[in-house]
């Protein structure tokens, strides 16, 4: 398997709420820390990427937010304008209004258009070699297949024309596992695991993109070994707990209850992790990221995740 960061284009997807943007942001930061000129693109711009990097809102034009790290957000209309300018030499600068309207129209009528402009822009950055690595904080599990398979879809829908001519080289980039990979982010919970397994199967069947890895986010630490759990059970006995209360100068009740909760949570999650491993092709690596308890958000949290990710990748 190609090392993850050796690829040129990484799509990061996953069920909503699993920390997709965090992982994409951390992956980008990690790559830049290892000397790669890296571009991170938020495909569905909600502003989460800017929050992660604690920078001002990202736009279509990439901006360097950390040394060697650029951030941008996708805008399909701008992508079309750039495409027209570069490929057709069509002067559109002064005619933005009508173009936007017409574009909105065609894009609404033909679903593949927005997707191809998104994927096209990302592939174009790879082809032009402006960056060593492009990380896409891509769509959630529901839409990513549509995005990744857009070039094929356009091939079927649009028989001739310039758009059609463009899909060939995009497919070349997307289909090469040395260049492009998909990372699915999951948490050890029921629905994210189920969606990850479903998505992995659909990606293999309906797209040409290689599944590079599954990144399991928010893994809880193992609290006890089996013998330690027996000791813990004895600690919970009323007589022992009372003595502990005397010695520690206050009720340990909430602490014991919290430990019980942590153990149960961890156990439920272990079951889901096992299901995930069993449901994914054994050749696809699973990378584990710890649950972050710390009062960290923004860049600080991203740094922690990047560090954990680096350790998992053996960097």
């Amino acid at each position: 398997m190609t090392d993850l960061l050796e690829r040129r284009l990484i799509f990061v997807s996953g069920k909503g709420g699993v920390g997709k943007t965090t992982v994409a942001a951390a992956l980008g930061l990690l790559a830049s820390q290892h000397g790669k000129r890296t571009l991170v693109c938020e495909v569905d711009p909600k502003g989460d990427l800017a929050t992660s990097y604690e920078c001002s809102p990202t736009g279509f034009t990439p901006r360097e937010v950390q040394p060697g790290l650029w951030a941008m957000s996708m805008n399909t209309e701008e992508s079309l304008r750039e495409y027209l300018k570069l490929n057709l030499r069509i002067p559109v600068a002064g005619r933005i209004g009508p173009l936007a309207k017409a574009f909105d129209f065609v894009a609404t009528a033909a679903p593949g258009v927005k997707e191809i402009l998104t994927v096209g822009k990302l592939c174009w950055e790879v082809r032009e070699g402006h960056y060593d690595l492009v990380v896409a904080d891509a769509s959630a599990t529901g839409h990513i297949v549509g995005q990744l398979s857009a070039p094929q879809g356009i091939n079927e829908l649009v028989q001739v024309g310039l758009v059609r001519q463009q899909t060939g080289w995009m497919l070349d980039i997307l289909s090469d596992p040395a260049l492009t990979g998909l990372c699915i982010v999951a948490t050890p919970e029921e629905m994210p695991v189920s969606e990850t397994i479903d998505l992995a199967a659909r990606v293999a069947k309906e797209t040409t993109v290689d599944l590079a890895s599954i990144i399991v986010n928010r893994v809880l630490p193992e609290l006890f070994t089996t013998t330690e759990e027996e000791i813990f059970d004895r600690l919970c006995e009323p007589a022992v707990a009372d003595r502990l209360e005397e010695m520690a100068g206050g009720s340990p009740g909430p602490i014991l209850a919290a430990a019980r909760l942590a153990v149960t949570m961890r156990r439920t999650r272990t079951g889901h992790l096992e299901r995930l491993r069993a449901g994914i092709d054994p050749s696809v690596p699973l990378l584990y990221l710890p649950y972050l308890f710390a009062r960290a958000h923004g860049l600080r949290a991203i740094r922690q995740v990047a560090e954990a990710l680096g350790a998992e990748l053996g960097l």
Binding site: L84, A102, V106, L157, V158, Q159, V160, G161, L162, V163
Partner: peptide, 10 residues
């Protein structure tokens, strides 16, 4: 423009 980009058939 539309024809050139998308093709007449489409």
């Amino acid at each position: 423009v539309a024809d050139r980009i998308l093709g007449t058939q489409f």
